[in-house]
Write a protein that binds this DNA or RNA. Structure first.
Length: 486
RNA sequence: GCGCCAUUAGCUCAGCUGGUAGAGCAACUGACUCUUAAUCAGUGGGUCCGAGGUUCAAGUCCUCGAUGGCGCACCA
């Protein structure tokens, strides 16, 4: 054990010996530190509580700061005011401890509002030192493993998580204000459906079955529409058994909503209004700076089809390439290659289109753009376009090269849905772990009838990262998953 | 999964071509009634990520492993 640990444990006993409780039960506050720092001089009997984050001793005088989530306030201890209790403080209180203080407000020579402590109460002993105050914590592993320390030492971190809550509240308020109803659907499910992703699997002992953590709430929210609700949403914590990187988490917040009688164009219009509102609520403007580039949410957001986008960026017309082979030939003709060419080996035409899009187009989409009319093979739950049966009525909102929103006119034709599931099942049998599982229960629901629907999924963590200029999704969630410490 | 990089005191980091383990902050002792990265004097603190290897000698070089970061791939 280090010196510090030994010493702090000894102080914990000294606190008891002096008749105090090292872990007190409660403390009656009159103000937060932030509020108290606004009070007029000579306001008496101000009581605040918090963590001691700094202490400076001058023999018979000491200054320190007490902080809570509202902010911090300076306090002064004087021996000629506190008498014996001055020495007790010196012997018992360390940076990191929680204390309550009561005193009178004054302003120091340097102009800082300060509480002249008349009495103090020990609240809770910290047995470990806080990280160094000047550099704070920079080791990314420690910052994530002990996020609470980063929160204490880094105000920007606190601000970021406050912004996250502000954004989520604003979204919720907007949806509630537009007639949507927040509902809850299962996390443990029989079928991992609603997206193409590898699920987490676990065992449910009571029913003796395998269950899947949801990868998306989609099919349940649609069941709720079938049941008669016309506008529903859920902030759905979803789980995907895939890699962790700066834009992917195994455990992330997927907001989905569904609205009866809308098509994807109604949905696009609403999406644009919703997101502009959120950006403005948080930033007070429509411009956002991200990693040094300016992103503008202002003006009407462009809408471009998959076909036009690839035509523009790669000079390939995907409609003129109806097969995998013709498309590969066109790509070869334009000298389009991938770092790892093995990815195109087993890829069908639709997957190739998707790869092409991610390679040549998506990284260029910085300001918000709606990308529409995706290949049908990539969209097993989306409604087929009425004029072109090879594409679906779908859009993705792309910002900063990230897919933020994925939406479509929902497929509500049970026979078409059954066919799409069959295609997915075939792909799955052929070894595609991410192909969708057949969800008979969802099909049954659809057979009883669903109205026209358009719905939507949004990566909340990505939106928060974008609006807070955060470059790794693990820094917009408080406690990311890491391997256990050795 | 693959590649590159990192890991030294509680925290932030130095430690060159191999030669007795260092600093700042934090801690401890003392001085100090207006400081705020307080200051000054002194003291203690190390499984140099782990296991092997090369060498007279390894924090340093080599191999394997652990954890983390970044990039690639998969994916929102």
């Amino acid at each position: 054990m280090t010196d510090e640990l030994v010493c702090r444990r000894a102080k914990r006993e000294r606190i008891r010996a002096l008749g105090m409780q090292p872990y007190a039960e409660r403390y009656e506050r009159t103000h937060t530190p932030h509020e108290a720092a606004q009070l007029a001089d000579d306001t008496p009997a101000v009581r605040i509580a918090g963590r001691v984050i700094a202490l400076r001793w001058f023999g018979k005088l000491a200054f320190g700061h007490l902080a809570d989530c509202s902010g911090k306030m300076q306090f002064a201890l004087q021996r000629n005011v506190l008498a014996e209790r001055f020495k007790d403080f010196e012997q018992c209180v360390d940076v990191g401890d929680f204390i309550g203080i009561e005193g009178r407000v004054f302003t120091t020579k340097t102009g800082e509002k300060t509480i002249d402590v008349q009495t103090w109460t020990f609240l809770s002993k910290a047995l470990r030192n806080l990280p160094e105050k000047f550099h704070g914590m920079t080791d990314p592993e420690l910052r994530m493993r002990r996020r609470y320390l980063e929160m204490i030492t880094t105000p920007e971190t606190m601000a970021r998580f406050r912004d996250r809550t502000t954004i989520i509240r604003a979204i919720r308020a907007y949806l509630d204000g537009h007639g949507f109803m927040e509902i809850d659907t299962p996390v443990l499910t029989n079928k991992a459906s609603g997206a193409m992703a590898t699920p987490f699997v676990t065992q449910y002992h009571a029913l003796d079955i395998e269950v899947y953590l949801r990868i998306a709430p989609e099919t349940y929210l649609k069941r709720a529409i079938a049941g008669g609700f016309d506008k529903v949403y859920e902030f759905a914590r979803s789980f995907r058994n895939e890699g962790i990187d700066p834009s992917h988490l195994p455990d992330f917040t997927l907001l989905e909503y569904y609205c009866a009688y809308w098509n994807y164009e109604d949905n696009m219009a609403f999406t644009e209004r919703l997101l502009k509102h959120i950006v403005h609520e948080l930033k007070g403007a429509y411009d956002v700076s991200y990693a040094g580039t300016q992103i503008s949410f202002d003006g009407a957001w462009p809408r471009v089809t998959f076909r036009d986008l690839i035509l523009r960026d790669a000079a390939i017309d995907i409609e003129a390439c109806p097969t995998r082979e013709t498309l590969l030939a066109a790509m070869a003709d334009k000298n389009i290659t991938f770092d790892d060419m093995s990815v195109i080996k087993g890829a069908g035409r639709a997957t190739l289109i998707d790869l092409l899009y991610k390679k040549v187009s998506r990284p260029k989409l910085i300001n918000p753009v709606f990308v529409t009319q995706h290949p049908i093979e990539l969209s097993p739950l989306a409604r087929r376009n009425d004029t072109n049966p090879n594409v679906v009525d779908r859009f993705q909102l792309v910002v900063n090269g990230w897919e933020i929103v994925n939406a479509y006119s929902e497929l509500v034709d049970p026979l078409d849905q059954a066919e799409r599931f069959a295609q997915q099942a075939a792909a799955r049998a052929a070894g595609d772990a991410e192909a969708m599982q057949v969800d008979e229960d969802f099909l049954l629901c659809m057979e009883y009838g669903m109205p026209p629907i358009s719905g939507w999924g949004m990566g909340v963590d990505r939106v928060v990262a974008l609006l807070t200029d955060t470059h790794n999704l693990r820094d917009v969630i408080l406690f990311p998953l890491l391997r256990p410490e050795a």
